[in-house]
Simulated scan of single mutants.
Amino acid sequence: MILSWKAPIYHSETLLGSYDAEIGSYETAGSNFDYLSLLSGEPYPADMDRPKIFFPCQKKKLLAYDCLWLLGDIPLVSERLADFLMQKANHHIQLLKPASIAANGEAVDDGYYIVNVAQAISAVDHSKSVPELSDSGTILYFNEIWLHDTAAGMDGIARERDSGDLLISQDLADAMIENRFKGDKGLGFYIANQSFTPYKNQA
């Protein structure tokens, strides 16, 4: 089974990271950083700056978790989870060290890494899914989405080519659960079958 991996539904907004020293910022001031580059399923551009990350919570609260989320449903993972992902899916991910991380103005020196997935696959079941199309026929988003149980090129982790969803295999998700990695309200795993259903109470 292929799962969607994104922020849990009811996770704390104070644990949602932005890309500058203000809540809700998608840009890092004075930088060429573009968060959309982290949704493309391509290698991170070599000439692009790493972003500054800001969380509006206390540092102690942030450090309790292995899996945090940045705007755009992009995971920020602890060093422990980063090492695990490199062991299991190193061919398809890049771990990017942010320029800096701050929690309520306090510097976070502990190792956290942005997960960039450098592989895109087609996994949406278009016979069941309901897309919203632009005037030119381009898919904007899905009102209802179903994923195939398997897809060519799916090996641990990937980006979905049409929806932009971050995908994770059931085997890799189960291994993360079994290793007791911690995220606020769960690790954010969903079954995409019309709507998003939490997988093993992880969202």
Rank of each mutant, 00 (worst) to 15 (best):
L71T: 11
A192W: 00
K61N: 12
A175R: 10
K88L: 02
N116K: 05
N201G: 06
D171K: 15
A120E: 10
A175Y: 03
L38A: 01
P8A: 12
I93E: 00
N90A: 12
K61G: 02
A151E: 03
V115D: 00
Y35F: 12
E132R: 10
I101Y: 00
L70Y: 00
S37M: 15
V124C: 07
V124Y: 01
A29T: 15
E79C: 12
R159N: 01
D110Q: 14
A102F: 10
I9Y: 14
G137K: 04
S31K: 13
I53S: 06
S100M: 05
A89M: 03
D135T: 10
D125G: 05
S134E: 08
F181M: 10
P8E: 11
A173M: 11
D34H: 15
I145E: 07
G17Y: 00
Q170H: 13
D135S: 14
K88S: 03
I121E: 02
S195R: 14
S163M: 04
R50E: 14
S37H: 11
L15Q: 04
G156Y: 00
I53G: 04
Q119W: 00
L3M: 10
A173I: 05
S195P: 00
Q58C: 11
H126N: 09
K185L: 06
Q194C: 06
G137L: 03
K6T: 08
N193H: 13
S37E: 14
P56W: 07
E27G: 06
Y199F: 13
K128S: 08
G164F: 05
A151K: 02
T14Q: 09
L133V: 09
Y19N: 08
D135K: 10
S78Y: 04
S134N: 08
Y199L: 08
A192T: 09
M176S: 02
R180K: 14
T150M: 07
E106I: 10
S4G: 12
G41E: 02
Q94W: 09
G183T: 03
L166S: 00
A120N: 01
V108K: 08
D165Y: 06
E106G: 01
V108D: 08
W69D: 03
D73E: 10
S37Q: 15
A192L: 08
G188L: 04
D149A: 10
L3E: 03
M86F: 07
E13L: 14
S122L: 10
F54Y: 15
G188F: 05
D125I: 04
P8S: 12
L172G: 01
K6L: 07
I177V: 15
H11G: 10
